[in-house]
């Protein structure tokens, strides 16, 4: 047993391939950035629909949130990559294929848009009515009130929660290797196929991700502490 333990802790192999593995990590970051943009914008849109005056809009917003919040990342990834192109292809009568990167961004972006939508909605509804009354009393349009009064406050209040969602999202990008996006785990599996030595590589990957996420989480925790104190002064 100690031989295996030694093997798995012998990270020299991991270090040897660090260039290609780092490339993979950068891909994770890229997927994360693109998907995060999608999640934020779609999530905001869904949240605004949920508090719209017209009930069909509210209904659609709620449907969006419930479908995507409750959907497992992996099945969404597979569905977007394999089913969505076929559906679109049927619509425009052409063969459509998604680049795996695109599928990953769409799938993760939409799944997390559900979580962001809920966070936004809770934040919007927490703004005291008086703030809005004052805006209206001054003759501000609803749109002006939304962008100058409501959303700046929502962003301030929800920043810690949003940061935690971002960290979750970054962790979720590890599954994109399953549709052949060349991220860290994909490159790890490539190296394993070549070197036939899984132990140090999987261990190395686990440690790498742990370190990154750990540092990010600690950072976010400290920041959120100080931020909350400042905002709720």
């Amino acid at each position: 047993m100690s031989d295996a333990l030694k093997q798995s802790l012998d990270l020299s192999m991991f270090w040897e391939y660090r260039a290609i593995l780092l490339q993979g990590l950068i891909f994770n970051a890229l997927v994360f950035l693109c998907a995060a943009s999608v999640a934020l914008s779609v999530g905001l849109g869904a949240a605004l629909m949920r508090i719209n005056r017209f009930w069909p809009m509210r209904w659609i917003g709620t449907l969006h949130v419930e479908v995507f919040r409750n959907a497992p990342d992996y099945i969404m990834l597979v569905w977007v990559h394999f089913v969505l192109p076929l559906l679109i292809g049927m619509l425009i009568r052409r063969r459509v294929e998604f680049h795996p990167f695109v599928s990953a961004v769409i799938a993760l972006g939409f799944v997390y848009s559900g979580y962001f939508a809920e966070a936004f909605r809770a934040g919007i509804q927490a703004i005291p009515q008086g703030n809005l009354d004052a805006g209206r009393a001054f003759g501000m349009s609803e749109r002006l009130i939304l962008w100058r009064i409501t959303l700046p406050q929502v962003v301030r209040r929800m920043l810690p929660e949003a940061l935690n969602l971002f960290i979750s999202m970054f962790k979720a990008t590890t599954i994109v290797s399953l549709i052949a996006v060349p991220d860290l785990m994909y490159n790890v599996s490539m190296v394993i196929a070549q070197e036939m030595r899984p132990l140090p590589l999987y261990t190395g990957a686990a440690l790498t991700y742990f370190l990154i996420i750990f540092l990010l989480s600690v950072g976010v925790r400290h920041f959120s502490e100080r931020w909350r104190r400042k905002i709720l002064a």
Partner: peptide, 12 residues
């Protein structure tokens, strides 16, 4: 256990 992504943890 919290910070390692579940997929990575699973393979490991």
């Amino acid at each position: 256990f919290r910070d390692t992504p579940i997929f990575v943890q699973l393979m490991w």
